[in-house]
Amino acid sequence: MNYAAYQLVSICILTISVVGLSLVVNMCGRLSLCQGGLFGVGAFTAALALTRSHVGFLPAVAAAGMMSGGLALVLGTWLVRLKKEQFLLASLAVQAVLFTGLYNTIDLTGGPSGISGIPRPEVPRWFVAPELGGSGLGSSWISSETSTQFLLVAVPMCLLSIGLVVQVRRSPFGRVLAAVRDDELAASALGRNPMTPRLAAFALSGVLAGFAGALFASFHTYIDATSFGIEESIFLVSIVALGAPAGIAGQIAAVAIVVLLMEVLKLAVPQSTHVAHVREVAFGLCLIVVAIVRTGGPERRRSRA
């Protein structure tokens, strides 16, 4: 039961990052390779808030969202002006900067040793042990030590994130994003500033990456910078690319499939050090296959020849 709950939590955390990234990749039409770094910034912000400042879980999550979102906003004011290829390069550079920064500011992030002892959020006692009820035995909130208990936090956050992105896509804001993506010139000709909606989308994707990072830090109770490198960004991009033809639902399904496949991978590959490498090859191949097989879905511009 706890094993399934563990997988479900992983799915929730990953989904938040992925739907956030889909705002940039699918709605803005820009490939971004810095989502892993922003995810890391969120994770460390939450970790520091929880371990050093001893704030509650929700304030830590908010701080993480604001930090990653704020960073995305600042970087975005530059990045959104770039054309596709340069945006990709710039996002790669941003990822490299973020990773190097996270890895080397040892005072804050612990460098290779990371931060450990990150507390779990507190959940209502009645959820954990209903028979104890409100009998007055100690506090009515206890730490969510098991994965099942953590689900109480992870699932609502995941659903909220999905809801947010779906709402954005369906709204007039989503429509102007699609318009700017399809034909920036035409959108400009209709008086729409192409930069503003893109910046908002990019910042929002940063906020979601921050939320995911906070959940990740709290769930694993230990984080270090090596989890937030280029491999993580590529991993996220490949899930977005895999699921994109089927929309958000497809991307969520892709997350679930990928998480399960990774479990299978862990059983198949005996050496744990090799798992990361095999994962990288696997997702690289996914990206290649997706790129070759893509015949053009609703989000692709069609040739007018």
Binding site: S171, F173, R175, G191, R192
Partner: peptide
């Protein structure tokens, strides 16, 4: 329709309250 609108209710903040 996009041409007829002037971009009102197209901000990200308004989108949260749409429709």
């Amino acid at each position: 329709q996009l041409a007829c609108l002037r971009g009102e209710s197209e901000s990200w903040a308004t989108s949260l309250l749409w429709p």
